[in-house]
Amino acid sequence: MKAFVVLMLLFFIPLSANAGVYKWVDANGQTHFGDRPPAKSASSEVAVKAASASVDAGARERHQKMTEFLEQQQEEREVRQAANAKAEEKAAKQAELCRKLRARLKDLASVSTFYNVNDQGERVFVSEAENTRIREDFREKVRSTCGND
């Protein structure tokens, strides 16, 4: 019995989906449309034809333009992401370079005197003024490369 009721409901569902559209004129002369006929007025059923979506060339053109726009936006997004990744990589290399330069500058502060090696392989110590100049030149290199932080 339950199967019969379910079967009958499934049979009538498509009929209710195709319910008609009714047209009537009220007492004031205004035309109305509805999915149910009015109780007090005479009405006539109107045949409604659905527009074919595949025929609309304008819709295809709009769809094509939208697709092209979205593809262009995706390409621009990928270019921006690549540029950001490159900038981040460059910033990371710069930070590593500055870390090494600052470590070297700290090491130079602990060295009491500098020397050069002559052609015979002997150490030739430089003057105190030259020591100061070497330290100051390196300090300036760190400042120009890494800033004052």
Rank of each mutant, 00 (worst) to 15 (best):
L105E: 01
E88A: 15
V48M: 04
R99F: 12
L9E: 04
L105Q: 01
A39N: 12
Q74L: 11
S52I: 10
Y22V: 00
A83W: 07
A103L: 15
S16I: 15
A95L: 14
A47F: 04
V48D: 02
K90Y: 15
N116T: 15
P38F: 08
D26Q: 03
S54Q: 11
R77D: 09
W24E: 00
K93I: 09
K90W: 08
R104Q: 11
V79F: 05
D35Y: 06
D119L: 08
Y22W: 07
A92L: 09
A50K: 13
R102H: 13
A59I: 04
Q120I: 08
G34Q: 02
V124T: 12
N116Q: 12
R77P: 03
E122P: 05
K40N: 09
D119S: 08
L105G: 00
N18Q: 07
E88W: 08
S44I: 10
R36Q: 11
A51F: 02
E122G: 01
K49L: 12
G34A: 05
R102D: 08
F12G: 00
A53E: 11
L97P: 06
A17P: 04
A83Y: 10
A17R: 09
A85Q: 11
K106A: 14
D119W: 02
V25F: 02
M8C: 11
A95F: 12
E96V: 13
P14T: 04
V55F: 04
L7N: 11
Y115G: 08
H32G: 04
A87P: 03
V117G: 05
E89F: 05
G58A: 01
A85R: 12
V21F: 00
E61M: 12
L97A: 14
E45R: 02
V46W: 01
Q64L: 14
E128N: 10
R104L: 11
M66Y: 12
G58P: 00
K49Q: 12
Q120V: 12
E75S: 05
A91C: 10
I13V: 04
D119T: 05
K49T: 13
L15H: 04
D119M: 07
R123A: 11
Q64M: 11
G34V: 00
F114P: 03
Q64V: 09
L97T: 15
K65V: 04
S41E: 13
A19M: 06
